[in-house]
């Protein structure tokens, strides 16, 4: 997913250098009422989703990630990092956000 241009009403947040996140892990970000989780996959990809799972509000930033999947730490529900779709279960989906790394290595994420 690419951020092409900020559309009216949308914001682009700069979360700072991707390299600050331990490889293969996630951390949460709070911006006013908005809580999101940002993940740095070992292959260099960065993804951003809702901070909490739709099942029991598990903290996704504390989950285990694969190249495309986040597994919630509470009850092991998986979600596709890029689309937010549930993987192999009926626990609903999470919202995913467009994200891009700029030339300085900073994470830019588009939020509503």
């Amino acid at each position: 997913m690419k951020i092409t241009a900020p559309t009216p009403g949308n914001l682009v947040l700069n979360l700072g250098p991707a390299a600050r996140i331990p490889p293969g892990e996630g951390r949460s970000v709070r911006f006013g009422d908005l809580s999101i989780a940002v993940f740095r996959v070992r292959n260099g990809d960065v993804f951003v989703t809702d901070a909490r799972c739709p099942h029991k509000s598990g903290p996704l930033a504390d989950g285990t990630i694969g190249n495309r999947t986040i597994v919630c730490p509470l009850h092991a529900c998986g979600f596709d990092l890029e689309t937010g779709a549930g993987v192999g279960h009926g626990c609903g989906r999470v919202k995913s956000f467009p994200v891009e790394i700029n030339n300085d290595g900073d994470i830019l994420v588009g939020v509503d």
Binding site: I3, A5, P6, L11, V12, L13, N14, L15, G16, R20, I21, P22, R27, S28, V29, R30, F31, V38, P59, A61, L108, V111
Partner: peptide, 19 residues
């Protein structure tokens, strides 16, 4: 083992930065 090992948050954001 890592500066953020026990940090919940990557960053707390005060304001948005346009591209």
């Amino acid at each position: 083992v890592h500066p953020l090992q026990f940090s919940e948050e990557l960053v707390s954001i005060e304001a948005g930065v346009a591209l």
